[in-house]
């Protein structure tokens, strides 16, 4: 459903800071896959997501979504089909608006943002039910400003918002990294639940190897702009966390750290 074809990307070309990240990079994701992406710092995970979402330009290559070439499409147009949740909890919500306002805003995606009433009163019960499932008590705080919530609570709302209108593809960039271990697990459980219930094709970058392996149907390991490991199905079932760690440590030693 998504294909990155022969991608070249160099940052700061022609300057002393030139950084050649991708040369002839390829990645294909199939309908319904939940891909966990792991890899060392600076290996190009975030950049991969940025290329897919259209937040950065590429030098060469193509981005293809459902047989449609979207390479030239600006980020906000791609966002109609590609949802994204960031590492920073404040990026997925509007902090000065209430939970109810935020959810109504997200619920209107793909429709016109016109001069009709902003609050979606009819969907209030639906929102309550969604929030109830989180077990965070947010169902009683619909009229609280999102800025008053904790990072974990905001991130949970971000995920609900990004999937309220089902996207074709969901991009998650270390979306649990800023949270404490318990919230991190809660948000991860929620992610898994939404993704499997709605059958959303998902690409999740994480530094938590356990999350990547446990929740993903496919695990991709990146290093220095290359995919050095890509397992799914039976092969994935036969790979243990220790195997991943071994490969990971090998490349880390290669780098001298």
């Amino acid at each position: 459903m998504l294909r990155l074809k022969n991608i070249d990307k160099t940052f700061c070309a022609g300057t002393p800071n030139e950084k050649i990240l991708f040369t002839d990079f390829n990645l294909e994701i199939k309908e319904g896959e939940f891909v966990g992406v792991v890899g060392s710092n600076g290996s190009g995970k975030t950049t991969t997501l940025n290329i897919i979402s259209g937040d950065i330009d590429i030098d060469n290559g193509e981005v293809i979504l459902d047989d449609k070439n979207i390479t030239k499409l600006p980020n906000y147009k791609r966002a109609k089909e590609i949802a994204r949740v960031f590492q920073n909890p404040s990026m997925g919500t509007c902090s000065s608006m209430t939970i109810f306002e935020n959810l109504s805003l997200a619920d209107n995606k793909l429709k016109s943002y016109n001069l009709t009433k902003g609050l979606n009163i009819k969907a209030k019960d639906k929102y309550r039910t969604l929030l109830e499932q989180l077990g965070m008590g947010l169902e009683n705080r619909l009229n609280d400003v999102v800025g008053t919530l904790s990072g974990g609570q905001r991130q949970a709302i971000s995920i609900i918002m990004s999937t309220l209108i089902k996207p074709k593809l969901l991009l998650l960039d270390e979306h649990t990294a800023a949270l404490d271990p318990k919230s991190s697990d809660t948000v991860m459980e929620l992610t898994q639940k939404i993704v499997s219930e709605q059958k959303i094709t998902t690409l999740m970058v994480t530094h938590n190897l356990r999350h990547a392996v446990q929740y993903g149907t496919r695990t991709v390991m990146m290093h220095d702009g290359n995919i050095i490991l890509d397992v799914s199905g039976e092969k994935k079932a036969n790979t243990t966390t220790d195997d991943y760690l071994k490969i990971f440590n090998e490349i880390s030693i290669e780098c001298g750290n």
Binding site: C94, S96, L105, N114
Partner: peptide, 14 residues
């Protein structure tokens, strides 16, 4: 309080 207004508020915030 309209949808367009909501979007305006979120544009400045985020």
């Amino acid at each position: 309080k309209t949808k367009s207004g909501f979007l305006l508020k979120s544009a400045g915030d985020n």
